[in-house]
Every structure is written in C-alpha cells, then in structure tokens.
Design a protein around this nucleic acid. Structure first.
Lengths: 218, 218
DNA sequence: GCGGCTGGGTGATTCCCGTTTAGTGTCAGG
DNA sequence: CCTGACACTAAACGGGAATCACCCAGCCGC
C-alpha cells in the first residue's frame, strides 16, 4: 500500500554504476561489522546499537548483517565475549599467583569491579540483563563465560574455607556473597551515575574491607 | 498525585448497549487500567507489559490509555510508586522504633531484600534500569521515592557513625556499601534465577552478618 | 565461449512496538 | 434542539528486528 511508487516508477535507475560496497571477501566484512558494532555498543549501549545503525556505519544494508550473524544478539555476544575473556584471563592469572587466598580474592574482586566500570555496557549485558529484552539463550556463550569467571573466583574462596578461616556459612555462599556485594556496588555506580556517590575507589575499598573482615578470620 | 478522584466522584451508571465499552466515567477507567497493567507487569515485566496488551485486558483500544496517562512509563510508574511507598512506609516504621541503630539497619535491609524478591519487576524498574530503554526522567517520581528510601535507611547508619562505631570510612560511604551489597545480592537472584544459588535466606544472612560485622564495632 | 552454481548483497515486506492524528458517538447544559 | 466537551476509536506513522525473493559478480567444468 505504501509501495505504489513502482506504478509511476520513472526513476528506474540502471544499476550500472555499482555504488554498492565491494565484496568483503570472507571474514573481512565480518570483522568490519564487529568493529563498527563495538564502537556503537560502547557509546550507546544495547538499545542504541541497532542493526540499521551498525549497517550504516559499515556502509552496507541492514540485511547484510544477517549474512554474517544469526541476529543482533550474536553480534553483541561476540563483542562481549572478547571483553569477558580478558576478565577470565585476569582471574586465571591471579589464581596462578602463589599468594594468600584472601589476597587473591581481593585482587580478583578489584579486577572485577574495575572491569565493570571500564566496560559498563558489556557488564550490563552479561550481569544485569534479565532475559526480558535480551533472550538469555541467545547470549548463552557469554553467560557461560561469566560463569567460568565466577568459578575461577570461587577457587581461592574454597581455599580459605579449607583453611577453616570462614567465619560462618559455606564456601559456596561466601563466594556468592562476595561476588554479589561487589556486583551491587558497580551495577549501581553504572546504572545510577547521577546519584551523589562517594568516591568509587573509597566505596570499593570499604566494600572489600568490610566483606573480607566480616567473612574471613585471620 | 493519585488523589484527584476526590473532586466529587459522581457515581453515574450508564447501562447502555453499545458495542464499545461503556464510558468509564472519570477516574474509574483509570483504576481499571492500572489494575490490568499491574497484573501484566508483574507477570511479564516491563517489556511484556505492552500498551496494546494492557488495552486488550481492559477491553478498550490502545489509544484510550492516552486519555488517562501521558505514556506507557507513567502507567508503570504509578504502579511502582504504590509498591515503593510500601517499602518507604516500612523503613519509616522501623526508623521510628527505639531499637539499636544496628538492629534498625538490619531490619531495613531485610525488609528491602524481601521487598525486592517479592516485587522483582518493580525492583528492576526502579533499581536496575539504566535509562537505556526506560527514560529516567519519565519515571523520575519513582526514582525519587527510591531515593527517599535510601535516605530513610541512612538515618540509623549516621546514628551508628555518631556513636563512633564505624570501623572505617564515612557514614555516607558505609550506607552506600550496605545498600549496594544487598542490592547486588537480590538483583542477581532476580536476574539470574537459574544459577545454582545457595539458599536465599542463608545468602541474605551471610551478607548482613558479614557486612555489619565488617563495618561496625560493638 | 558458456551455462550454472554459489554466496555476498539488496529492497520490499512482515510483524511488533509506542505514539499521533483525525475523527465518531454520546452525553450535559444552554 | 443545538453545541461543545469528552471518552473513545480506527488508521496511520516511524522505527525497531527479522525474513523474503530476488540480483549479480565470480568461478567452475565443459
């Protein structure tokens, strides 16, 4: 009904001059899309990174993105995976250091919170999304990476428990509480930046000091 | 804001037989919409509670909602306000009790987390939304109510600080850490329900014990 | 040469969403 | 019996994600 333009279509342009993009053979176009999508996602978040905007940035029709990716979530997932893998590598590196497990826990949580504040949109996608507007199973790989990060983090907590230094509760519960406490802090800093927060570094320190002192004995 | 129904509340009944819905005189239709929207919002969350679904449930055209509300966010905001006002009332009640401020803090945080788990969608709307798909200024009233809850909660924390019982940091920072720690726990329980969590009650207890022991001296 | 396959690319289309516009039917008051 | 206000509606708009039927260049075996 809106497309009756063809009846009068004097505009029949000959596709003779190919104004379209040269074919990005194979995986090169894929990389272009990811790069453009990452820029937009970082700048404007999940809702702001629309298929059309990404396609425009690459200089290609929106449909073309479906040549390389199943859907929008897959694009964002691949971007986020790169970021989370960095976090996992950080945790693995810390876990390999022969330090006191409490120090290891602290280092990991500090790295975690720093990561969150430096990659707020990725962080929200992985750790704050509710499956409401983002289907969880579509970004299952990313969520699985998040799980592996938590498991890596659990190791030193279990080591603390094995030393009998847990004031109360199981190692599992302690790990969850430590993680979720830090998660709460950074997620609020990210989602409510306009509130009159104290200095983030001080908040992180108070959170870590408080939780570790409260949960672990010397 | 909700109380303009007092103008006269004419109880006109019109037993008419038109195909369309009888006119919901004045503010009666408004209440119907809110009730239907609340049911859908609780069941399906922000994205699931679409204008059209709400209108269908009421038995009215989607456009009719705009007679009574500025936009979708205003509907959800009024629903959430009712819930958050209950939380604020709880906090006010606790603050009025002549108990030790540490006990008051614990009671408030317990009430807060229980509220979150019982009203997950409202909780996310107020405390997890990022302004990405929900414009923060549209639900400004709701956010302001959330702020007042935090201020109410800050009172006993400042009392603790005034007693010199804070292990470190300012009262402001301590209040933010206590709040955000509990927020992190319930927000993860809500958004990642499928993870293998420990018992929520135990987690809440470990969080409160840990933070209070870690931050406050006897 | 040449037909046909393949795969990146496209515009049109579909189906939602929130919201707007231009009305329509029904009343109360003059 | 008007008239105007009001509750309400159908239709449409613009913008999202995703799908469809194509198009066309390059390359293959012949």
């Amino acid at each position: 009904m809106r497309g009756e333009a063809n009846s009068v279509s004097v505009v029949l342009k000959k596709p003779h001059k190919s104004a379209r993009k040269p074919k990005g053979d194979g995986h090169m176009r894929r990389g272009e899309i990811l790069a453009a999508a990452e820029k937009i996602f970082i700048a404007e978040g999940y809702a702001g990174a629309t298929i059309r905007k990404i396609a425009d940035a690459v200089g290609v029709s929106s449909t073309a993105l479906y040549m390389h990716f199943r859907d929008k979530d897959q694009i964002l997932m691949e971007i986020s995976n790169d970021a989370i893998e960095r976090l996992l590598a950080l945790n693995t590196e810390i876990a390999a250091q022969p330090v006191d497990p409490v120090a290891g826990v602290r280092l990991m949580l500090e790295a975690y919170m720093t990561f969150a504040l430096e990659n707020p949109n990725t962080y929200q996608l992985v750790f704050c999304s509710t499956g409401d507007h983002i289907s969880q199973d579509k970004i299952a790989d990313t969520l699985a990476l998040g799980d592996r990060c938590f498991e890596k983090f659990s190791e030193p907590v279990h080591a603390i428990a094995a030393q009998g230094r847990l004031r109360s509760g199981t190692a599992h519960a302690a790990a969850e509480v430590l993680w979720s406490g830090c998660h709460g802090l950074v997620s609020l800093l990210i989602t409510k930046p306009s509130r009159g927060w104290s200095d983030p570094d001080e908040l992180m320190k108070v959170m870590l000091d408080g939780l570790l002192y409260g949960l672990v004995t010397d």
